[in-house]
Amino acid sequence: MTGRTFEAVRAGDELPELVVDVSATTIVLGALAARDWRPMHHDHDFAVNRNGTQDIFMNTPNQAAWFERFVTDWTGPTGRLGRMKFRMSGSVFPGDTMTMRATVEKVETDAVGCGWAELAVTLSVADVVATTCTVRVAVPNGKDDNPWKRRGDQWQP
């Protein structure tokens, strides 16, 4: 199985954009897949008239799942997430077009030889950033390395 390798990653690299037209179905599917039954993620009337938002909106765990998909589309299956940090400043509603973008901020090999890329990821709606996320992802460092096989002290996320 092939995937992106450490020697092919450079600081400053940009990931291919991911553009998604968001519907009410997108929001509801995501909330239910995350087992988040709170009504602001599936009940328009509750969201607008009780919660005071413009519509139902995407929940945080589903945004994390979108970020994971976006990053591993780029790394391939041998990419292994180590760490994600979010900061949300806006919401994603039905009818929005959301765009995910990312830049490789840094590459490094850690003390046990694992190759890491640190990504600055944004999720934007109409070019306004709704969520920023930093992701630390390991990719194979050499033809014999597979981050998923690292155990114990060999995995330092």
Binding site: L29, A65, W66, R69, T72, P77
Partner: peptide, 16 residues
Amino acid sequence: GYVWTSCASVENANPL
């Protein structure tokens, strides 16, 4: 089943 439901919600085709 829940893994597939989650992947389907974000169209994640990762073969893992």
